[in-house]
Nucleic acid binder design. Structure first.
Lengths: 210, 210
DNA sequence: CTTGCGGCTGACCGCTCGGTCAGCGCTCGG
DNA sequence: CCGAGCGCTGACCGAGCGGTCAGCCGCAAG
């Protein structure tokens, strides 16, 4: 029997992974001990080492599984045939909604992305982030070549600004809830609409949309 | 003799603070041990406890001293009498330049800001961040009332997007260096100019600037 | 019934952690 | 010449860390 077990990872393993993700997202790699995870998952500490070997390995599993949930974010954008302002709005909405839907997965990836440790884990996050950046960059560049976006706009700066605007809002959402002026702290649809309004009217060739 | 020592903190203390800031910025509170700081500062571990009492206290000193360097960022903006696009450009430039000039101070504050631990340290970062947000928000709101900014623009969203665009670029600058399409990874002037170009043309009332 | 095996555990390991403490050496006022 | 005070240290503490290991338990095949 060469075939591996057809069933997905054991229930226990999934519970451990879920709790580890939750804890790593909240407190980071160094802020969480295996004992913490074991207690949260209601298993023994040794059990975690039995299934994952080392703390690093457990963390890597959490990171990769979280990265996978980020995968298809920009996939559909390239196939769309809508005008650029609509496609960018869709991207902003998809990104913001994704962050809200999978906050722990997002947080664990972003945390690793923002750390400057030049280890293996970093590369994973960089690859995924780099791929997403490049896809969005090319989309903007093509739209610019097609005349949909003004020539003065720097595509890379626009992409960084767009992603940054969405990510930052996610990162400081707990603060924004306390600001009475902010009405989009937990409303990705509203925020991405407001964002798109600003960005699109900033990259239009000639005419005004309003 | 009730007066405290008139001299600024001892040389040793300043060295410890500098090294601690560097390490906390790079690896976070949990990622740095007092031994690490002691080795980096070339003093004994006990010396650090002698001067700062606890690890938390050392961290707080690092955080507050870093926050102070953030202080005057938005101060001059309110007094300026330039058109809004110029003032926003100045803000973006000042912010981006500040992040580049004091990367460790910025990182230590941002790190604390993005953590979701509801402790005392958090409050410090929140207060400073909240104040800066509100100041910029009011600036935008006034400009909008004065007709300098289109009524459709949401001031809060614009502020979050602007700060986020600058902060995010800073956070991922090490990644952006590897992206050949990005020419502003370590050039705050260039990046803020490109940002302003996009944002300003997105918030203009009627006429075009180009 | 027996045997093998995988999921799982409690007890334990060496080590590092944050923190303590007695006491060193140097300086400086009396 | 003295002693008080300060900057500073090495040795040490209990606790918790990542990780190991012998072995328990239930189950399925022989």
């Amino acid at each position: 029997m060469l075939g591996a077990s057809p069933s997905p990872p054991h229930v226990t393993v999934r519970i451990i992974l879920a709790e580890a993700r939750r804890l790593f997202a909240a407190r980071g790699f160094d802020g969480v001990s295996i004992s913490d995870v074991a207690t949260a998952a209601a298993v023994s500490k040794a059990n975690i080492f039995h299934h994952f070997g080392t703390k690093q390995a457990l963390y890597m599993e959490v990171l990769t599984s979280s990265l996978n949930e980020f995968g298809e974010l920009t996939d559909h954008l390239q196939r769309e045939r809508a005008p650029i302002e609509q496609r960018l709005h869709h991207f902003l909405l998809a990104h913001a909604a994704h962050l809200q839907k999978y906050p722990e997965a997002a947080q664990v990836v972003l945390r690793e992305l923002l750390e400057n440790r030049s280890e293996i884990t970093q590369q994973l996050a960089e690859q995924a982030a780099g791929a997403q950046f490049r896809r969005l960059f090319e989309l903007v560049q093509e739209a610019q070549r097609a005349g949909e976006i003004r020539a003065e706009v720097d595509p890379a700066a626009l992409v960084v600004a767009m992603i940054g605007a969405v990510v930052f809002q996610f990162q400081v959402r707990s603060l924004l809830r306390h600001q009475p002026e902010v009405e989009f702290a937990d409303d990705p649809k509203r925020y991405s609409r407001l964002l798109a309004e600003v960005f699109v009217n900033g990259i239009h060739s000639e005419e005004t949309t309003g």
